[in-house]
Simulated assay, not measured.
Amino acid sequence: MPTKGLVERLSGGEDVLIAEGYLFEFERRGYLKAGSFVPEVVLDYPERVRELHEEFVHAGSDVVQAFTYYGHREKLRLIGKEHLLEKLNVDALKIARDVADRTDTLMAGNICNTTLYQKDKPELIEQSEAMFKEQIEWAVANGADCIIAETFFEYAEAELALESIKKYGQGVPAIVNMAAPSIGTMCDGVPFDIGCKKLEDRGAAVVGLNCVRGPTSILPEIRKIRQMCKGPIAALPVPYRTTLEQPMMQSLIDPDTNKMAFPENLPAFQCSRYQIREFAKECKEIGVEVVGLCCGNASHYMREIAEVYGRKPPASKYSTDMSLHYMYGNKANFSTYYTQDHKQQFYPTS
């Protein structure tokens, strides 16, 4: 188990970095189907999951998040594999627990939007709570240090998730992150900052926003949340170049096709490392204590965030040092094969 828990770290003035984005990264690597987005890779290629956990920790993540996002009953039913629900969840939790134990990091259970919740339909609310309950109980039974509840488009579903963690989680602290749609409020009309404040008042250890919005379009809302909430807040955007006019990754239009870029053409909108570095700097200035990235995340991005937050993870050993490059480095290291004239052809000074 970790030497310090989530609440202890935050109350002691520490920041917590979280690498998310497993769905998109495994889709990119060819181990997950876009569309259904079910984490079958946990069952089919468990070592790949273990390796990505280790890779994210190597890059600076303080949290190993069990890959149970969209591993819930409704998603498994969609692909006809509901009978594998418990095995997928337990296997994912055990893999995450093992990596966390070996790296002195926190292991987080994970629940998310149920895809069926509707606030005016009691039977769907009941089904949603039942789905939360089983995943929460599996997380607790397998040693989760905290539970991340995330990507809720309606405040009411986020509140139900938090209440379920309080009811079934045996005191495990909750991080509750909502997704910010382009309409400017949650889909049930609750402003983002007000929703976060209500969740904080109801006992969430951390509140904030994750997914759908990129750094440019999420930061204005994070600033409002920081002003509204007294406790720790979280910011975990997608690393795509969203704008205030196209604030969600689902809003982005591919100029080559004039069609929605989500999901296959999102790489055309990928943020640069410099943009992620600037995002992390702004988060630090705002006072965001829990920071990371969601769909589209990769280890080189997490290293940027970690270094801005004053860390030197193992991956920092390999941070860029262009002074050592044979063509673009300083004169002492510049290859004698290339003259300065040759160098200017590759890297002009003006």
Rank of each mutant, 00 (worst) to 15 (best):
F262Y: 14
I147G: 00
G109E: 08
S36W: 13
R97V: 06
C295V: 05
L124P: 03
E55W: 00
A130Q: 14
E137W: 07
N258I: 04
K121G: 01
D254Y: 05
E245V: 10
R202W: 01
R102C: 04
C295L: 08
V172A: 01
D193T: 05
C283L: 09
Q135L: 15
P247G: 06
E25W: 06
G214Y: 07
Y326C: 09
V49H: 06
E304I: 11
Y337S: 01
P263L: 06
E150I: 13
V57E: 03
K133Y: 08
L6W: 02
D254K: 13
K33A: 11
M302H: 14
E8N: 00
L76S: 02
G208W: 10
L23E: 03
G287E: 13
D341A: 12
K167R: 15
P348G: 12
R97Q: 07
F346M: 14
K87C: 05
A234K: 01
V207M: 07
E264S: 07
L43Q: 06
G71P: 15
A261Q: 06
L93Y: 03
Q275V: 07
L17C: 01
P215M: 12
D188N: 14
G169I: 14
I136L: 10
Y326N: 01
F192K: 01
R241N: 12
V57H: 03
I175L: 12
K81W: 13
F152G: 00
M228L: 06
Q118G: 00
V206P: 03
C283P: 14
Q127W: 15
I111Y: 04
D254G: 04
V16R: 00
A268E: 08
K94N: 09
L84C: 05
R311F: 05
D256V: 10
S319N: 10
F152I: 14
V49D: 03
F152T: 06
L124S: 00
H53Q: 05
A261S: 11
L85D: 01
M1R: 08
D145F: 05
G195L: 12
N142S: 04
T257C: 05
F153Y: 14
Q344D: 12
T103D: 01
K198R: 15
Q246E: 15
C271R: 12
D15F: 02
L76A: 02
D145W: 12
G60I: 13
N110D: 14
K343I: 11
K198P: 01
Y338F: 15
N142M: 10
G12V: 13
V16G: 00
Q344F: 08
L116M: 15
P2Q: 07
R73N: 08
A298P: 04
G5Q: 02
L32T: 06
Y117H: 07
S319Y: 07
Y326P: 15
Y22H: 08
P181E: 11
F279H: 02
E285R: 15
E304Y: 05
A180N: 11
G60L: 09
D145M: 09
I95C: 02
